[in-house]
């Protein structure tokens, strides 16, 4: 944000409430610790030192949906898993966002059959789709940064 640049001699910063709240939201997003399939391994790799997602304020993954505000759907969602996913989404407090990671979560990828949801957007509203099977950690980070940009431009009135 470059606080020190705005900080004049007075030691006071003036900003809009909306900007301040959005800044807080996108700078410390807590993803839900939920790995489903192959993409979860790449999600772990994105958390690991080589890619280090904590650069974006996302090193803390919460195992409880009550403490998280971003759901990364990392993997194929089966018909048995779909109700669980929906329940987890409903347990998350507002404001919340969903990132669909990988082809399986976005459109079920190479699997077109009886067992899988053909895209997780049938169950939860998705904000960002990340393509790839599995997406590289860079791709996931790009998706996350895209989401951050989106959150940064949100209007408070939309949530109210």
């Amino acid at each position: 944000m470059g606080v020190e640049q705005k900080l004049g001699n007075l030691g006071v910063v003036t900003t809009k409430l909306e900007d301040l709240i959005n800044w807080g939201r996108y700078r410390s997003m807590y993803p839900l610790l939920m790995g489903i399939a192959c993409c979860a391994i790449e999600m772990m790799a994105a958390q690991a030192p080589h890619y280090d997602m904590s650069r974006f304020g996302m090193e803390l993954m919460r195992a409880s949906p009550r403490q998280s505000d971003l759901m990364i759907v990392a993997g194929r969602v089966t018909r048995k898993m779909a109700p669980v996913l929906r329940q987890l989404y409903e347990q998350m407090p507002d404001p919340k966002w969903v990132l669909s990671m990988g082809d399986c979560a976005s459109c079920s990828g190479v699997f077109n059959n009886y067992a899988l949801m053909q895209g997780v957007d049938e169950v939860v509203p998705v904000d960002v789709y990340v393509a790839g099977c599995p997406p590289r950690p860079e791709a996931l980070i790009h998706g996350v940064v895209t989401l951050h940009e989106m959150v940064r431009g949100e209007k408070l009135t939309d949530w109210a």
Binding site: A37, G75, R76, T78, K80, M81, V84, F111, N113, L116
Partner: peptide
């Protein structure tokens, strides 16, 4: 089990 049954 079966939460990841993909029908491969």
């Amino acid at each position: 089990i079966g939460f990841l049954h993909t029908g491969i």
